[in-house]
C-alpha cells in the first residue's frame, strides 16, 4: 500500500511552513538563504507527487526548471552576501538597512 497524495502534500506544507518561519527567525543572510532553499524543495516535492499520482511528466520537468533557478539564485545570492560582507564586515540583515555606503 502506498501513502496517499494528501500525505505528500501535508509533508510539503510542513516543510514550507518550517522554511517560512525560519526566514523570519533567522537574522543571518545565509540562514535566510538556506530557508528559502528549503521552501523551494517543499514545492518540488509537491510537483513530483502530483506528477506521480496523475502520471504526467510535466511536473518533473518543472522541478528541473525550479532547480536551475535555485542554482542561479544561489550564485547571485551568495555573490550579494559576499559583496555585502566586504562592505560592512557582517551578514546580519539588520545591518543591511542602509542603502548608501
Amino acid at each position: 500500500m502506498e501513502p496517499s497524495l494528501g500525505s505528500y502534500l501535508a509533508l510539503s506544507g510542513i516543510l514550507f511552513t518550517i522554511g517560512a518561519v525560519g526566514v523570519i527567525y533567522k537574522r543571518n543572510a545565509i540562514g535566510m538563504f538556506m530557508c528559502i532553499e528549503l521552501m523551494l524543495n517543499a514545492v518540488n516535492l509537491t510537483f513530483v507527487a502530483f506528477s506521480r499520482y496523475y502520471g504526467d511528466t510535466t511536473g518533473q520537468l518543472f522541478v528541473f526548471m525550479v532547480m536551475s533557478v535555485a542554482a542561479a539564485e544561489a550564485a547571485v545570492g551568495l555573490g550579494i552576501i559576499i559583496a555585502f560582507f566586504r562592505n560592512s564586515m557582517s551578514v546580519d540583515v539588520d545591518d543591511a538597512s542602509i542603502l548608501k555606503n
Binding site: G6, S7, L9, A10, G13, I14, F16, T17, A20, V21
Partner: peptide
C-alpha cells in the same frame, strides 16, 4: 500555514 496545510490534506 500549518492550518492551510491541513486544510489541503482534507
Amino acid at each position: 500555514l500549518l492550518a492551510q496545510t491541513f486544510f489541503i490534506f482534507y
